[in-house]
Amino acid sequence: QTVQFNGLEYHFPNPEEAEKFAKKVAKELGGEVRVKDGRWQID
């Protein structure tokens, strides 16, 4: 599972970890999490 933001990609072994990370980062950055092409993106 991949999380993308600021032009970087973070890879996680399972979707739960990816989701948790994506939501944490979005909260800290005040961004929005969305899934695109099977990847988590933070904008």
Score class of each variant (00 low, 15 high):
Gln1Asn: 14
Gln1Pro: 08
Gln1Ile: 10
Gln1Gly: 10
Thr2His: 05
Thr2Leu: 09
Thr2Lys: 06
Thr2Met: 08
Val3Asp: 00
Gln4Phe: 15
Gln4Trp: 14
Phe5Gln: 01
Phe5Glu: 01
Phe5Lys: 01
Phe5Ile: 11
Phe5Ala: 04
Phe5Arg: 01
Phe5Tyr: 10
Asn6His: 10
Asn6Lys: 09
Asn6Pro: 00
Asn6Tyr: 08
Asn6Gly: 09
Asn6Trp: 11
Gly7Ser: 05
Gly7Ala: 04
Gly7Trp: 04
Leu8Lys: 14
Leu8Tyr: 12
Leu8Val: 13
Leu8Asp: 06
Leu8Cys: 15
Glu9Phe: 13
Glu9Pro: 03
Tyr10Ser: 00
Tyr10Val: 06
Tyr10Ala: 02
Tyr10Asn: 00
His11Leu: 07
His11Ile: 09
His11Gln: 08
Phe12Ile: 01
Phe12Arg: 01
Pro13His: 09
Pro13Val: 09
Pro13Gly: 09
Pro13Glu: 11
Pro13Met: 10
Pro13Ile: 09
Asn14Ala: 04
Asn14Glu: 04
Asn14Cys: 14
Asn14Ser: 13
Asn14Thr: 14
Asn14Gln: 04
Pro15Gly: 08
Pro15Ala: 13
Glu16Gln: 10
Glu16Ser: 09
Glu16Asp: 09
Glu16Met: 10
Glu17Gly: 04
Glu17Cys: 14
Glu17Val: 05
Glu17Met: 10
Glu17Asp: 10
Glu17Thr: 07
Glu17Phe: 04
Ala18Arg: 01
Ala18Val: 01
Ala18Pro: 00
Glu19Trp: 12
Glu19Met: 09
Lys20Pro: 01
Lys20Met: 11
Lys20Gly: 06
Lys20Val: 09
Lys20Ser: 10
Lys20Thr: 09
Phe21Gln: 00
Phe21Ile: 01
Phe21Ala: 01
Ala22Ser: 03
Ala22Arg: 04
Lys23Glu: 06
Lys23Asn: 10
Lys23Leu: 12
Lys23Tyr: 14
Lys23Ser: 07
Lys23Gln: 10
Lys24His: 10
Lys24Trp: 13
Lys24Thr: 08
Lys24Asp: 07
Lys24Asn: 07
Lys24Pro: 00
Val25Asn: 03
Val25Asp: 00
Ala26Cys: 13
Ala26Lys: 03
Ala26Tyr: 04
Ala26Gly: 05
Ala26Trp: 05
Lys27Glu: 11
Lys27Phe: 11
Lys27Gly: 08
Lys27Ser: 10
Lys27His: 10
Glu28Ser: 08
Glu28Asn: 07
Glu28Thr: 08
Leu29Arg: 06
Leu29Tyr: 13
Gly31Ser: 07
Gly31Tyr: 13
Gly31Trp: 12
Gly31His: 08
Glu32Trp: 11
Glu32Ala: 11
Val33Tyr: 09
Val33Pro: 08
Val33Ser: 04
Arg34Asp: 05
Arg34Glu: 06
Arg34Thr: 13
Arg34Pro: 02
Arg34Ile: 13
Val35Asp: 04
Val35Ile: 13
Val35Ala: 07
Val35Cys: 15
Val35Asn: 08
Lys36His: 11
Lys36Thr: 10
Lys36Asn: 08
Lys36Arg: 10
Lys36Gln: 11
Lys36Glu: 11
Lys36Trp: 06
Lys36Cys: 13
Asp37Met: 05
Asp37Ile: 02
Asp37His: 06
Asp37Asn: 12
Gly38Arg: 04
Gly38Ala: 04
Gly38Thr: 03
Gly38Lys: 03
Arg39Met: 13
Arg39His: 10
Arg39Thr: 10
Trp40Lys: 01
Gln41Arg: 08
Gln41Leu: 14
Gln41Met: 14
Gln41Ala: 07
Gln41Cys: 14
Ile42Pro: 02
Ile42Asp: 02
Ile42His: 03
Asp43Pro: 04
Asp43Gln: 11
Asp43Val: 15
